[in-house]
Computed example of a mutant assay.
Amino acid sequence: MQQGSQKIYFFLAMTAVLWGGNPVAVKGMLGEMSPTMIVLLRFLGISMILLFFMFYKYGKAALPPRKHVPTLILMGFTGVGLNNGLQFTGLQYSSAVNCSLVAALSPAVTAVLAVVFLHEKLKLRQWLGILISFLGVIYLIAHGSLEVIKNLSFNRGDILFLASQISWAIYSVLGRGVMEDLSPMATTAWAGVAGTFFMVIAVLYQGTGVTFQLSNFAWLSMAYMIIGSGILAFNWWNEGVSSVGPNRTAIFSNVIPVAGMILSVAFLQEHIGWREIVGGLWIITGVYLATRRSSMEPQTT
């Protein structure tokens, strides 16, 4: 049993690394493809693969219950369209390092929305963690400058990163009710299908032409985002939730910004200064406090 848990923890760590590398892959592709086209191709690939697997294994039983269709459409709009679209667009204006750090705020934002819409209760420690993580994001996107805050002259990309995490938090809250009847894989697949349709509309509106004259790096990056940070990462994450519980699994989200920072420096030669380090520590510390359960609290499985 212990060996099995160690194996799951290894794959959860790999998941965090794969998700940390996602902004790096997108950043490298932006010179060849628009953000909306990247989102469209990524989730078209993810959805097709997952749907093929589900229909092959379950047949018509893979179809979602009619009552969940409106929610899945909304999840596709928020979790696929807005989350990825805003994040990938933000990478045109800001760094992959900042993207990874702001993305670490996601559990804290989700916790706040769960209080508002699902009437969940948070302890004082969790509220403190949320406050610290939000202050860390403000410090990061303000580059440690009070003048930036006073003049509201934030980097456009960092603001888009923050908006994308709010969109992902909405997606996560919506998904809790859906996954009472659907598996995480089915939820991901059908939300991906809905999101793909929204991205088709966005691409047609922008008039972005489809081109297959991409560099080898772009093709490898797209394969990475579909298979690596898409199919494999989601599957391993869901397996972790099933095997060791959502609370222990959530701890590995703290690895994502660290992996993102290291990969951004290694592959994009981005600079990490003391502002990024201080802001990142605030965010990670706050999220840890907001998501950690004490030994006296029940473990949800």
Rank of each mutant, 00 (worst) to 15 (best):
Met75Gln: 06
Ser100Glu: 03
Tyr93Gly: 09
Asn22Gly: 11
Lys57His: 15
Gly279Ala: 13
Ser294Gly: 10
Arg248Thr: 10
Ala104Tyr: 00
Ile227Arg: 07
Gln126Asp: 11
Ser94Glu: 08
Ala233Pro: 03
Asn151Tyr: 02
Lys150Asp: 07
Pro23Tyr: 00
Glu180Ile: 11
Leu12Gly: 02
Leu86His: 02
Gln2Pro: 01
Thr300Pro: 05
Trp219Arg: 13
Phe53Leu: 03
Phe55Lys: 00
Gly273Glu: 03
Asn83Thr: 08
Gly209Tyr: 12
Ile166Tyr: 12
Val80Tyr: 00
Asn151Cys: 01
Tyr9Trp: 06
Ala114Phe: 00
Leu124Ser: 13
Met29His: 09
Tyr56Asp: 06
Ile38Met: 08
Ile283Arg: 05
Trp168Ser: 14
Ala111Trp: 03
Trp168Pro: 04
Ala266Asn: 04
Ser47Arg: 05
Ser94Gln: 10
Val255His: 08
Ile231Tyr: 00
Arg248Gly: 06
Ala25Asp: 05
Ser229Arg: 07
Trp282His: 06
Tyr56Gln: 10
Asn98Ser: 09
Ala202Glu: 03
Thr291Arg: 03
Tyr56Glu: 04
Asp181Gly: 07
Ile251Phe: 12
Gly81Glu: 04
Leu51Ile: 15
Ser95Lys: 13
Ala61Gly: 12
Glu147Asp: 12
Gln165Lys: 10
Gly28Glu: 04
Ile256Trp: 03
Ser106Phe: 01
Ile284His: 06
Gly245Asn: 06
Glu297Lys: 06
Pro70Arg: 14
Asn83Tyr: 10
Ala16Leu: 14
Phe267Lys: 00
Thr291Asp: 07
Leu86Trp: 02
Phe43Glu: 00
Thr36Gly: 01
Ala250Lys: 11
Gly144His: 06
Thr89Asn: 08
Asn235Lys: 12
